[in-house]
């Protein structure tokens, strides 16, 4: 992992945050850096943040996944239906994991076997999963979902809970971030993911099972979309087949802002997490400033351009040539 890259995105996030501290302090005379705001930011970031973990794995192999938004919607529907039928939150969680994993495995198997490119495959499954979600939900939202402790994942912390600092769902996000970072750096599978993204032919030559690695990363992508879907249920309390459209693009943006290369072989999960926080901070700060939605979108777009341009600049500087024989 390139620590330098992470520090860069971290600093970028701090700068963005400080800009809003100044703007909100200046124009509204209110503090921006408060425990409440921090908690709110984490609550808003958790869905895209979780999805970005899976997306990082996919992009690390040089692939792309356009389906997680649909997978999130499908998960909310299935979890909603499960909770209504059983009232058992554990089964709800299990449902989210199973739906996500199956969706991801379908992506992975198609990408590995069809060899038509991940963009096309996941564009297709994006439509398919969305359709299935609507079918399961009879083109309605799945309402009157019984209230369970799943809601507490993204609920505002009560007075007696402030010692937790951030909501439970955000702790889940951070824990998975650490675990998946370790998987990437400390397991042979993780290194194989990077190897496939760096040079697929070399990986094959060296006996790495490229297809299994691909099925693996898309499965992880699906699994994390499933977990993000669970958080979505937690937030809105219903199953909604139309929700989370476009979330996949936010995840991709988070990965790119975090230093990931769409060509594969590069990137890191912590960077993507800060990428998510940058976008969330802009969103939250702009809302509190009363800046219109369309301006927020322009700012986020500009951030992506700047992030990629900085990355290109970093790459284009002449490499140090090693002393020759």
């Amino acid at each position: 992992m390139k620590a330098k890259g992470v520090v860069g995105v971290f600093i970028a996030w701090v700068v963005v945050y400080l800009i809003f501290v100044f703007l909100i302090g200046h124009f509204q005379g209110k503090p921006f850096l408060t425990p409440d705001n921090f908690e709110l930011m984490m609550r808003q970031a958790v869905i895209v943040g979780l999805g970005a973990i899976g997306m990082s794995y996919v992009i690390m192999t040089g692939g792309i996944d356009l389906s997680p938004g649909s997978t999130i919607a499908l998960t909310t529907v299935v979890v909603g239906l499960t909770l209504k039928a059983t009232n058992n939150p554990w089964l709800g969680i299990l449902a989210s994991l199973v739906v996500g994993l199956i969706a991801g495995m379908i992506n992975g198997i198609l990408v590995a076997k069809l060899k038509v490119g991940a963009f096309i495959v996941t564009l297709a499954t994006m439509l398919i999963f969305r359709g299935v979600a609507k079918g399961f939900a009879h083109e309605q939202t799945v309402g009157s979902v019984p209230s369970t402790w799943i809601e507490s994942f993204t609920a505002a912390l009560g007075k007696s809970e402030t010692w937790q600092i951030i909501p439970k769902g955000a702790w889940v996000w951070l824990a998975l971030l650490v675990i998946m970072t370790l998987v990437l750096n400390r397991t042979v599978f993780g290194r194989n993911v990077v190897a496939v993204g760096s040079n697929e032919k070399t990986a094959r030559l060296c006996g790495i099972n490229v297809n299994m690695v691909k099925i693996g990363v898309y499965s992880i992508g699906g699994l994390f979309a499933g977990i993000a879907g669970l958080m979505q249920v937690s937030r809105v309390g219903i199953g909604d087949p139309t929700i989370a459209a476009g979330d996949e693009l936010k995840m991709i943006a988070a990965v790119v802002i975090g230093g990931g290369s769409l060509l594969g072989g590069e990137g890191n999960l912590i960077g993507a997490a800060f990428g998510t926080l940058i976008m969330t901070t802009i969103n939250m700060g702009s809302t509190q400033l009363g800046i219109a939605n369309w301006i927020q979108e322009i700012i986020t777009g500009l951030i992506i351009v700047v992030a990629v341009a900085l990355d290109r600049y970093r790459m284009s500087r002449p490499p140090k040539i090693a002393p020759e024989a």
């Binding site: 290194r191 190897a195 040079n199 032919k201 070399t202 030559l205 060296c206 072989g265």
Partner: peptide, 19 residues
């Protein structure tokens, strides 16, 4: 094109098959 993963380190490239 095939022999080496150029964006990775010497150490990584050296040990792919032997892990």
């Amino acid at each position: 094109e095939e022999g080496l993963a150029l964006t990775m380190s010497i150490a990584e490239n050296l040990t792919f098959p032997g892990r």
